[in-house]
Computed example of a mutant assay.
Amino acid sequence: MESINRHITIQVTGVTPSLQKCTDCCNSIHCPFCSPTIFQPATKSRVLKHLEAHKRNAVKHKEYAIFKCNLNCNKIAHFHCPSCQNTISRRDRL
Rank of each mutant, 00 (worst) to 15 (best):
20 Q>V: 00
67 F>C: 11
17 P>T: 09
10 I>G: 12
23 T>W: 00
14 G>F: 05
60 K>H: 13
7 H>F: 15
80 H>Y: 15
45 S>E: 15
8 I>L: 14
90 R>N: 01
62 K>P: 07
25 C>R: 02
85 Q>G: 14
47 V>H: 01
15 V>Y: 15
52 E>P: 04
72 N>D: 11
4 I>K: 05
26 C>G: 05
66 I>F: 15
44 K>W: 04
55 K>P: 07
23 T>M: 00
22 C>H: 03
73 C>F: 09
26 C>W: 01
53 A>G: 00
75 K>D: 12
34 C>H: 01
1 M>G: 11
62 K>E: 12
77 A>R: 01
7 H>V: 15
78 H>N: 08
93 R>H: 13
38 I>P: 03
81 C>F: 11
19 L>D: 03
43 T>L: 10
60 K>S: 14
7 H>W: 13
37 T>H: 02
91 R>W: 06
83 S>E: 13
41 P>L: 08
9 T>F: 10
64 Y>E: 08
12 V>H: 09
84 C>S: 09
50 H>A: 02
39 F>M: 00
3 S>K: 07
35 S>H: 07
8 I>P: 11
66 I>V: 15
32 P>S: 05
35 S>F: 06
61 H>N: 11
55 K>L: 09
19 L>F: 06
20 Q>N: 02
67 F>W: 06
16 T>L: 14
8 I>N: 06
62 K>D: 10
32 P>V: 10
46 R>F: 12
21 K>V: 15
94 L>Y: 09
37 T>A: 02
76 I>Y: 14
6 R>H: 11
89 S>G: 13
72 N>R: 07
36 P>K: 01
40 Q>E: 08
94 L>E: 03
34 C>V: 07
71 L>G: 10
44 K>S: 13
18 S>W: 02
32 P>Q: 03
46 R>K: 10
19 L>C: 10
42 A>S: 06
90 R>C: 01
22 C>K: 01
23 T>Y: 00
75 K>I: 12
86 N>F: 08
88 I>P: 10
77 A>W: 03
54 H>R: 01
84 C>Y: 05
13 T>H: 04
22 C>L: 08
4 I>W: 05
88 I>L: 13
56 R>P: 02
69 C>V: 13
53 A>V: 02
63 E>S: 02
70 N>E: 08
10 I>F: 14
30 H>I: 07
53 A>Q: 00
26 C>D: 05
